[in-house]
Design a protein around this nucleic acid. Structure first.
Lengths: 133, 133
DNA sequence: CTAAATGCAAAGCATTTGCAAATAT
DNA sequence: ATATTTGCAAATGCTTTGCATTTAG
């Protein structure tokens, strides 16, 4: 199973709960804690919220997943992916990934601020195609 | 006093505590709840955290201030300004404003995603000049 | 004079912690 | 065999709420 290999690469012990988390993230893309808990309970009715939190924590430590902070909503978590941005629908809450060429911005910002930049987060807010109708 | 006019423009009742919040935000740029509370107590030793929260809330409602969400740190609040981005130092936590031309990105994203975009948030993470030495 | 803001204490929630039992390597 | 993870319950901590009093318009 691909999930198992993935976890091992990041030196995370492979447990059924962790495999499920990876599967859910692959399937849904971005999940809040509450949503992940809800989905997890369908597979492991006795799963504990504490387990979700502990795993999110461990997975963030190892950079296996990362947090997307969104204004007006709970944070979402996603499998770590090559640099990409997020587009949020203010109506239905849906989050979409989008690849944008932010490298010129990076350069511009580091020149203007003299910072040594390591990462960046672009979030776009609006209304999605479906909600526009 | 300029602070009073500002508050009135946004239809916020002018109280000494609110004037102080505006002054602090003008002086410091971006403040967390905790930091704002700490600074406020120097002027109003009896100020309540609840008052801070209530005012932050009211000021966000009227779009007088807005929230900047940052990975790994408490949210900061700033006076609403024309579109600009934030650069965060992972070492000392300092936040710097920077003007970047994101309009071409906006266009690119709305074309790719078919969203009707309303706003965007760019946050850059790195190490500031001082912390690099 | 009326409606809103303040400060305090209590209530609410999300997140974390401690610990015994179960599980992974 | 050992260290880690799990699930539960308790504890923590941030944020909100209710209410009497004060203040702004």
């Amino acid at each position: 199973m691909q999930e198992i290999e993935l976890l091992k690469e990041y030196k995370l012990k492979v447990t059924p709960q962790r495999i499920a988390i990876v599967e859910l993230l692959k399937e849904h893309g971005h999940l809040s804690i509450a949503k992940m808990y809800e989905l997890m309970k369908r597979r492991f009715p006795t799963v504990s919220l504490a387990t979700i939190y502990k795993n999110i924590h461990a997975m963030m430590q190892s950079n296996f997943i990362n947090e997307v902070k969104i204004v007006g909503q709970d944070s979402r978590y996603e499998l770590t992916q090559p640099s990409h941005s997020h587009v949020v629908c203010k109506e239905c809450g849906e989050i979409v990934d989008v690849d944008v060429s932010g490298s010129s911005l990076l350069k511009e910002v580091s020149q203007k601020t003299q910072f040594k930049l390591e990462s960046s987060s672009f979030v776009f807010y609006g209304i999605c195609r479906e909600c526009l109708d």
